[in-house]
Amino acid sequence: MCRWLAYTGEPLQASTVILDAQHSLVAQSLDSPLGNETVNGDGFGFGWYPENAHAGDAPAFFRSIEPAWNDQNLRELTRSVRSPLFFSHVRAAAGPPIQQTNCHPFRHQNWMFMHNGFLDGFAKMKRDLTFAVDPSLYPAILGTTDSEVLFNLALTFGLTDDPIAAMGEAIRMVEAVGRERGIAFPMQGTLAVTDGVTVWAFRYSSQGRTRTLFHSVDVDTVREMYPGAERLKLFGSRARLIVSEPLNNLPGVFNAVPESTVAVVDASGYHHEPFLAPND
């Protein structure tokens, strides 16, 4: 169910991780060893904050229904854009049609959101969940995915004020509605959300068997571990990556995010917080 990455730190040429890494996101779109689906070819998205962006500025977007490995525009764009914070996502559609409005990430003002996973039995829950979205947000739901509805539910519950609490409330509503309809494990997924400054990455499923999620370790530590790795010179000391699966095979470079956890990335680095717990 899709693959994604989030980068934050010193401005970086986006192709460094989207195209050029050993197991780049585009490589994962063709061959995803840790994914539920090996191929993620049902469109992609790239959302970034410009290098000269100010707090509160909206991100720019490029989304397409083309397979990521076959889109020359993605190559041109990511080799031209340098950004201090960007999201990218390759999609494996699980039901909703392949159309541009269903490609991640999604945007609201200066906020971005993306999701790897699904809401099980979404067709049975869709009406109740969609009608729970604040009426002022409803017109902005342009696609048909469960992910976009989940994002707007979290916005309804106060995402822009408290992302962790709002995402928790949105997921608990999904679980409550799903179980009313006999769905044992309504929520599955890893989620990323940002306001352009901080990144929150969630790993949670109702079953407690969530899709994989990793984040990089401190770059200076990695340089000490691998002093001969020339590619590390491309990254500043504040570079942080959160990924569905590691971008290389170097031991110790990426650590798994635990189940039922949110990894928060800000100017101070990473910290983890417990996030819900299955069947609470």
Rank of each mutant, 00 (worst) to 15 (best):
R3T: 07
L5Q: 04
A6H: 08
T8H: 09
T8I: 11
Q13P: 12
V17R: 11
L19N: 09
V26H: 10
S29F: 07
S32H: 15
S32N: 14
P33S: 04
P33T: 08
L34F: 12
N36M: 14
N40H: 01
G41P: 11
G43P: 03
F44G: 04
F44H: 07
Y49L: 09
P50Y: 08
P50E: 13
E51D: 11
N52Q: 15
A53M: 05
H54R: 15
P59L: 02
A60I: 13
A60K: 15
F62C: 10
S64L: 07
P67C: 06
P67Q: 03
A68Y: 04
R75T: 13
L77M: 09
R82N: 10
R82D: 10
S83C: 05
S83G: 02
P84S: 04
P84A: 07
F86R: 12
R91E: 07
P96I: 00
I98V: 11
I98L: 09
N102L: 00
F106I: 00
R107G: 10
R107Y: 07
Q109D: 08
N110K: 12
M112K: 05
N116Y: 03
G121E: 11
G121H: 09
F122C: 06
K124V: 12
D128P: 05
S136V: 15
A140G: 12
G143N: 03
T144F: 01
E148Y: 04
V149K: 04
N152C: 10
N152F: 07
T156A: 00
G158V: 08
T160S: 08
M167D: 00
A170S: 08
A170D: 03
R172Q: 13
R172C: 11
R172P: 12
V174L: 09
E175M: 06
G178T: 01
G182R: 02
T190E: 01
G196M: 03
F202K: 01
Q207W: 12
G208K: 07
G208M: 06
R209S: 15
R209F: 15
L213A: 00
L213D: 01
V217N: 12
D220S: 10
D220C: 13
R223F: 13
E224R: 14
Y226I: 01
Y226H: 08
A229L: 12
R231D: 10
L232R: 01
L234A: 13
G236D: 00
A239Q: 00
R240L: 05
R240K: 05
S244R: 06
E245G: 02
N248E: 10
V253P: 13
V253L: 09
F254Q: 05
A256W: 03
A256M: 02
A263N: 03
H271P: 08
P274W: 08
D280S: 15
